[in-house]
Amino acid sequence: MHSHLSFENPPAEPHEVVVETLERALRDRTAAGEAANVLVGSALNDDVEFVEHWCVQIGTRAAPGSPLLGLAGLCLGHTARRFGRLSEEALALSKSLAARAEADPSDVDGRAVDGYDDVRDFLHLW
């Protein structure tokens, strides 16, 4: 008997749901799982300004060691892939989160490095 795992990308949620969920996760680390789903859903489906804003909010406000830090970096990579651009602030954050991940994976997980690799690939920053 084989068991097959499946993964489905989360859908985009209404902005008010995303904002409430992410703000709650910034106050209460136990909400990180739900926040991860709404952030990824936004990164894959929402407009560039909204995604960048919330990645920057997470990337600058989440506590060191929060799993949302690496995820914000990864989502900036998705955003660069989808739109072929990032704001200077988002680009600087992506680079900073990747550097933090390389320096101390217990601070920011390696998804930030993967995200910055995508940023460099899709924005031709090599």
Rank of each mutant, 00 (worst) to 15 (best):
residue 1 M to G: 15
residue 1 M to E: 15
residue 1 M to F: 08
residue 2 H to Q: 12
residue 2 H to T: 13
residue 4 H to W: 00
residue 5 L to P: 00
residue 7 F to R: 05
residue 8 E to G: 08
residue 13 E to T: 01
residue 13 E to R: 00
residue 15 H to M: 14
residue 16 E to Q: 02
residue 17 V to P: 00
residue 19 V to D: 02
residue 20 E to T: 01
residue 21 T to S: 02
residue 21 T to W: 05
residue 22 L to W: 08
residue 22 L to Q: 06
residue 22 L to I: 11
residue 23 E to P: 03
residue 24 R to Q: 12
residue 25 A to C: 09
residue 27 R to Q: 14
residue 28 D to Y: 02
residue 29 R to H: 15
residue 30 T to D: 14
residue 31 A to I: 04
residue 32 A to N: 14
residue 34 E to V: 05
residue 34 E to R: 07
residue 34 E to Q: 12
residue 35 A to Q: 02
residue 36 A to I: 02
residue 37 N to S: 14
residue 37 N to M: 14
residue 37 N to T: 05
residue 38 V to K: 00
residue 40 V to G: 00
residue 41 G to T: 01
residue 44 L to T: 01
residue 44 L to F: 09
residue 47 D to V: 08
residue 48 V to S: 12
residue 48 V to K: 14
residue 49 E to Q: 10
residue 51 V to D: 07
residue 51 V to Q: 07
residue 52 E to V: 10
residue 52 E to S: 06
residue 55 C to V: 08
residue 57 Q to Y: 10
residue 59 G to C: 09
residue 59 G to H: 04
residue 61 R to K: 14
residue 63 A to W: 14
residue 63 A to R: 15
residue 66 S to G: 05
residue 67 P to A: 06
residue 67 P to G: 05
residue 67 P to E: 12
residue 67 P to R: 07
residue 68 L to G: 00
residue 68 L to Q: 03
residue 70 G to Y: 10
residue 71 L to T: 09
residue 72 A to E: 01
residue 73 G to T: 10
residue 73 G to S: 09
residue 73 G to I: 06
residue 74 L to W: 15
residue 77 G to T: 13
residue 77 G to E: 11
residue 78 H to G: 00
residue 79 T to M: 04
residue 80 A to V: 10
residue 80 A to L: 08
residue 81 R to Q: 15
residue 83 F to T: 03
residue 85 R to S: 07
residue 87 S to F: 14
residue 88 E to G: 06
residue 91 L to Y: 07
residue 91 L to S: 03
residue 94 S to V: 05
residue 96 S to M: 10
residue 98 A to M: 04
residue 99 A to I: 04
residue 99 A to H: 05
residue 99 A to C: 03
residue 100 R to L: 10
residue 101 A to W: 04
residue 101 A to L: 12
residue 102 E to D: 12
residue 104 D to A: 07
residue 104 D to E: 14
residue 104 D to N: 14
residue 105 P to V: 10
residue 105 P to D: 11
residue 106 S to Y: 11
residue 107 D to K: 02
residue 108 V to Q: 05
residue 109 D to K: 03
residue 110 G to H: 13
residue 111 R to K: 09
residue 111 R to V: 00
residue 115 G to Q: 04
residue 115 G to H: 04
residue 116 Y to W: 13
residue 116 Y to M: 05
residue 117 D to Q: 15
residue 120 R to S: 05
residue 120 R to T: 13
residue 120 R to A: 10
residue 121 D to N: 10
residue 121 D to L: 13
residue 123 L to G: 01
residue 123 L to D: 06
residue 124 H to K: 09
residue 124 H to P: 00
